[in-house]
Design a protein around this nucleic acid. Structure first.
Lengths: 255, 255
DNA sequence: GATATTTCAATTGTCCAACAAACGAACAAT
DNA sequence: ATTGTTCGTTTGTTGGACAATTGAAATATC
C-alpha cells in the first residue's frame, strides 16, 4: 500500500483558508468588518506577522479589502478585480486573436439573444445613448473603442447572466488592444466605424423589440465583420496579442 | 490648480509590483530562481517580513511559486490557478444553475465543434478510454461524475483554444456539485447515466470522423438532457448553487 | 447651539533580532 | 545500495518595538 501525501500547510495559509471558509459559507458577509490584526492573532494563537501574511493572500484573492490604514472588511468580489489577472494569464500564454474571436463568436451573440428578453428601459436608454455618442465620436474623429467596449458590456449585463459576464470579461479586456490596432489601420478606418455603428443600431432596435433571433444575428454579423476587418488589414490572426498595449487604466487606489 | 491624488502604496505592495514588472517585462522568465528573502530584503532596503508580504501577493497571483520550504521561482500562471477564484466569485454572487447552464449551452457545443477539426490521436484515445471507464463505473455503481467532468475537459482541451478553456473552467467547477445532486436523485439515477454515456459515445465518434456539425449537435442534446434531468428531478433552476458542496479537490501542494 | 480644532487611544505599517524546522548536499556506516 | 549523520542555508514563525495614520471623543471657537 501507499500513503497519500500529507497536506501540511504553513500557518499563514491556514489562517487565510480559515477566514476564506467563513466568508464562502456566508457566516461573514460582504461589508462586514473583520477583527483587528491583533485580535485575529490572539484568536488564532499566532503572531500578528503570520496573520498579516494570510491577509495579503485574502486581499489578493479579492475576498477582503482594506482602504489605506483602515480596518479590514469583507469585499464583494467584482468582475473587474479578476479580469486583469485573467488577461495577464492569457497574455503570458500567448493567446491569439483567433482564440479570442472564437470565444466571442459564441458568447456575444448569445448575450444579445438573452438580453432581448430581459433588458430593462434604463439599460436600453444607456445603449441608445451609447450609439449616439459613437456617432458623434465618428464625426469628431475621436476614438470609438471605449464606446464599443462599453456597448458590449451593456449588452452582456442586460443578458442578466453573471456567469456569462464573468466568462466574457477577460476576453473583452484583451480585445481592447486588438481593436486599437484594427481601427488605427488605414484600410479599415474609413469604412469600419460606419459598419460598426450600424450593427450596434440594429442590435439595439432588436433588443427594444424583444426579438432575440434578430439581435443574435446582428451581433453575429458584427463579430464576423470584426474578424473580416482584421483580415483585410492584413493582421495575423494567429499571432500572439501585444502585451505592451496598455489595458484601460484603473483609477489609483484611494489612500 | 489642483493636484491629483498621490498614489502612495505600502512597501510590501511596491515590492510585489516591482518584481511583477520584471516578470511581465520578460527580464525574469518562467523557471528562474529568485534571490532569497534575505537577499531581496537587502537589495530593496526593507525588512524581510515586508518582502514576505510581497511574496504572498505574487504567489497568490500565480506569478511565482514555492515548493515547500524551498527557493522561490518564476511560474507560468496557469488557468487552474485562476479558475478557483472565478468560481468563488460566482458562488458569492449566488449564481444559479440556469446561468451556468446557459453559458455551457454556448461553450460546450462550440468546444465540441472546434475539437472535431483539431483533435489528435492521443486525446481521442483518452476520450475513448474515458467512455469505457464510464461504462464500467455505471456497471459497478460508482460515481461517474469525475469521469463526466474529465470528458468535458478533454473535449475543451482538444478544441485547442486556451481562451475557451479559461472561460469554461470556472463554470465546470461549479457544475460539479450540481451534478452530484442530480445523479444522486432517485428519479434520474436510473436513466440519466445511460443517456449520458450514449451522448458521450456519439460525440467521440463525431470527433473521430472530424464531423463538427454532428459533434456540436450531440453535445447540444447532451446539455439539454442535463437540464431536463434537473427539471425532472424537481430541482430549482433559479436557486443559488450550494457553496458548501466540495469542489473537485486539488492535489495537496507538495511540501 | 453648531462648527472647528485639538487631543488621544486604537490600528496599521514597518523594523530589528532571534530561533526552530526543513532542505540539500556531502559524507560515514551498515 | 540504502540508511544514518552532520552542517550550512533558507524558510517559517515568534517576540517586541515604534512611527504614522485614523476615528472619534473632548475641547475650544464663533
Amino acid at each position: 500500500m501507499a500513503f497519500a501525501r500529507l497536506a501540511i500547510l504553513p500557518t499563514y495559509k491556514v489562517v487565510s483558508d480559515t477566514i476564506e471558509r467563513e466568508i464562502l459559507a456566508g457566516r461573514l458577509n460582504a461589508g462586514d468588518i473583520l477583527p483587528t490584526e491583533t485580535e485575529l492573532a490572539d484568536q488564532f494563537g499566532v503572531t500578528r506577522h503570520t496573520v498579516r501574511e494570510g491577509i495579503r493572500i485574502l486581499e489578493q484573492s479579492g475576498l477582503v479589502r482594506r482602504e489605506a490604514g483602515r480596518r479590514l472588511y469583507v469585499a464583494e468580489p467584482h468582475y473587474g478585480d479578476l479580469a486583469p489577472r485573467l488577461s495577464r494569464a492569457m497574455v503570458m500564454q500567448r493567446v491569439t486573436f483567433r482564440e479570442l474571436w472564437e470565444v466571442s463568436m459564441d458568447l456575444e451573440p448569445s448575450a444579445a439573444a438573452h438580453a432581448a428578453g430581459r433588458i430593462d428601459a434604463s439599460r436600453l436608454a444607456q445603449l441608445r445613448a451609447n450609439v449616439e455618442a459613437t456617432e458623434e465620436a465618428i464625426a469628431a474623429g475621436t476614438s470609438i473603442i471605449p464606446l464599443d467596449v462599453a456597448f458590449h458590456i451593456l449588452v452582456a449585463e442586460a443578458a442578466g447572466n453573471r456567469a456569462l459576464l464573468l466568462a466574457r470579461e477577460p476576453v473583452t479586456q484583451l480585445f481592447y488592444p486588438a481593436l486599437e490596432r484594427l481601427f488605427r489601420h488605414p484600410k479599415t478606418s474609413a469604412v469600419g466605424p460606419r459598419r460598426l455603428v450600424e450593427a450596434h443600431r440594429h442590435i439595439v432596435e432588436a433588443l427594444a423589440d424583444g426579438d432575440a433571433a434578430v439581435a443574435r444575428e446582428w451581433m453575429r454579423k458584427h463579430m464576423v465583420d470584426f474578424r473580416r476587418g482584421y483580415d483585410t488589414a492584413g493582421l495575423d490572426l494567429d499571432e500572439a496579442l501585444d502585451p505592451t498595449a496598455a489595458p484601460p487604466a484603473a483609477p489609483p487606489p484611494r489612500r
